[in-house]
């Protein structure tokens, strides 16, 4: 029913915009990662694999990448541990308060990410809220200093930020489960635990995968929480990229690291999508 002109009119403008502002920049990222910087700090536009060689030879890059993945993995697991039972409770047991509780999960998302990270800083600092509270009630005499400027602080903050992201797709998938399947399972003699394990959990796997991907990928690329709360031991891979694009002035190496990150992210999305396909019952 739609004419050729109509289809062209809806297709061409977004296509052009996306090509200029997404495709070209990614292509530039790709090119930069094979260029280099001269001594006089100009970009040398000749192709080289040096950046990738550095990336695999200089320990600090790989170490930091693995540390970031380890932090992201913990954030993912904790967000799922917090998000899944919450989503399950809301979907199956919250009754009339369901809608209210749902809104309560969403509302923290409307407080700036940066501000929430900052709030954790004021809570965890050595003269922060938590430490002064602990001293006030005489649990400790001296402030606990592992709370702030540590990977712990980064994991805690990112878990706080990404728990709603993990919750949302899980909740959506639980809400999609036809309730008569659950009843059928019950009528056929399955115990509540069996019903959960054999019916509800498998049907919610696509939501879990989506939530896990969000939590892992977004925390993997984070650089503000580590800068604010991580200290030297909480540095993540994006912090290295930021410094390479700033003071250290080595865009090509920064581009190579970013490109690896990009590929890693795409691989994870692909993996999660194929697993999702496997688990979706239609």
């Amino acid at each position: 029913m739609f004419s050729r002109a109509y289809r062209a009119a809806i297709t061409v403008p977004p296509l052009v915009w996306v090509a200029v502002f997404l495709l070209v920049p990614y292509a530039l990222l790709f090119c930069y990662s094979f260029w280099s910087v001269s001594v006089s700090q100009t970009i040398v536009h000749s192709w080289t694999l040096d950046n990738y060689r550095d990336l695999f030879r200089v320990n600090v890059y790989l170490q930091t990448l693995f540390r970031s993945m380890w932090i992201a993995a913990r954030v993912m697991v904790f967000s799922l541990l917090l998000g899944y039972p919450l989503a399950y409770y809301l979907s199956f047991h919250a009754g009339a308060r369901k809608e209210l509780f749902y809104q309560l999960v969403i509302i923290p998302l409307w407080v700036s990410y940066l501000v929430r990270a900052y709030a954790w800083k004021t809570i965890l600092g050595s003269d922060g809220v938590l430490n002064t509270l602990l001293q006030y009630v005489h649990v400790t005499q001296h402030p606990l200093d592992f709370l702030l400027y540590s990977p712990f602080a980064v994991v805690l903050t990112l878990t706080h930020i990404y728990t709603p992201f993990a919750f949302l797709p899980i909740y959506a998938s639980l809400e999609h489960i036809p309730r008569n399947l659950v009843e059928a399972s019950h009528d056929l003699g399955a115990s509540p635990f069996q019903t959960f394990w054999r019916v509800i959990l498998p049907l919610s796997i696509p939501g879990v995968l989506a939530g896990a991907t969000f939590a892992f990928v977004l925390s993997l690329g984070d650089f503000l929480a580590p800068l604010l709360l991580g200290g030297p031991s909480g540095i993540m891979i994006s912090n290295i990229v930021v410094s390479l694009f700033g003071a250290a002035y080595n865009w090509p190496l920064g581009a190579a690291i970013s490109l690896c990150m990009l590929l890693l992210v795409l691989a994870l999305i692909y993996l999660s999508e194929s697993l999702e396909k496997k688990w979706s019952f239609r």
């Binding site: 990614y26 581009a255 992210v265």
Partner: peptide, 16 residues
Amino acid sequence: PLILPGIITGLSLLML
């Protein structure tokens, strides 16, 4: 860009 860490979008646009 919905799922990509903002840093990648940011610096590739910086290059553009």
